[in-house]
């Protein structure tokens, strides 16, 4: 090699280490702050090297307050139900479009594609979901609007089926007397597991991280808040914990509430599951991002 190879590799590694640090250190600050004693936080602010540690914030979160636990439950519920339903509907819509000779296939494909070009935006969506379907302040509000399925995923699925399910296999199953539903679930489904897994990750992450549906549609029923909605609400209203959880003796509680550290502790609780499973799903996630970029 002509250039100074060794020097280049050192510099390159230093740059990548710095970049990686930029991506990770904010989370470290979050974690350490959540473990810092409240009085130290008030005196010195959030810091990477606090004078003393304490588990008070976590003790507070998990003791006596069911709100966080409930938020967790709701987040897990909508993530599971939303992902399973959404992916099933995506597969059901994508599979017929991948079959040859289906009359009207192009019209339906365009019907789906058009939703990527044009949309009504927040005002009409809000009015239709809340005034026509009355999902405001129900669990459906966290499940239905926007997150369930989208044109992009449908086309990813269809392209995968086009490329990976040969017509001969389906024809063979048909000759053996299998019905179309049977073929879909017994033949096509097992063969499309890689794409289903990738899309499920994307949709699941979308549900886990969503806070907008809760912001728009959950107005009064704060017991339906997902963990993200709780976080969102707390950031906007520092008194939320005191008023929402302490009840009647809110004012006396507020004084002793470790509010500075507890915010960070709840944020940690909110991201921990994602970060914990991330190493396991990293491969599929990267694959999904890479395929997504290749247009259909």
């Amino acid at each position: 090699m002509v250039d100074n190879s060794k020097g280049f590799h050192i510099v390159n590694n230093v740059i990548m280490v710095l970049l990686s640090a930029c991506c990770v250190l904010p989370f470290v600050l979050l974690l350490i702050s959540s473990l810092t004693e409240e009085s130290v936080l008030i005196r010195n602010g959030y810091s990477f090297f606090p004078e003393s540690f304490s588990l008070d914030a976590y003790r507070y979160i998990f003791s006596g307050t069911s709100k966080i636990i409930k938020g967790y439950g709701i987040t897990i519920f909508i993530s599971l139900v939303g992902t399973v339903t959404g992916i099933l509907m995506t597969l059901l819509l994508a599979y017929p479009l991948s079959r040859k000779g289906l009359p009207g296939k192009n019209v339906i494909s365009f019907f789906i594609f058009f939703t990527m070009l044009f949309n009504g935006g927040l005002v009409p969506s809000y009015m239709i979901w809340s005034n026509v379907f009355h999902i405001r302040d129900t669990i459906w509000a966290l499940l239905f609007p926007n997150l369930l399925m989208n044109a992009f995923n449908i086309f990813m699925m269809r392209n995968y089926l086009n490329a990976n399910i040969p017509e001969e296999i389906i024809e063979a199953a048909r000759i053996d007397g299998a019905g179309e539903w049977h073929i879909l679930f017994r033949v096509v489904f097992p063969m499309s597991v890689p794409m289903i897994a990738t899309l499920s990750l994307m949709v699941g992450l979308g549900y886990w991280n969503d806070w907008q549906n809760g912001l728009y549609y959950i107005i009064g029923r704060t017991d339906l808040y997902s963990i993200q909605n709780i976080l969102n609400r707390m950031l906007q209203d520092a008194q939320f914990l005191a008023s929402g959880q302490a009840g009647s003796n809110a004012s006396s509680m507020a004084a002793s509430l470790p509010s500075v550290g507890i915010k960070m502790a709840i944020a940690v609780v909110g991201i921990l599951p994602v970060l914990a499973i991330y190493p396991l799903i990293q491969k599929y996630l990267v694959k999904g991002i890479a395929i997504g970029a290749v247009k259909g």
């Binding site: 939703t115 044009f118 949309n119 009504g120 935006g121 005002v123 009409p124 969506s125 009015m127 239709i128 026509v132 239905f144 609007p145 926007n146 369930l148």
Partner: peptide, 8 residues
């Protein structure tokens, strides 16, 4: 989710 809001 998509078409009604367009008309909306």
């Amino acid at each position: 989710n998509n078409y009604l809001p367009m008309f909306g």
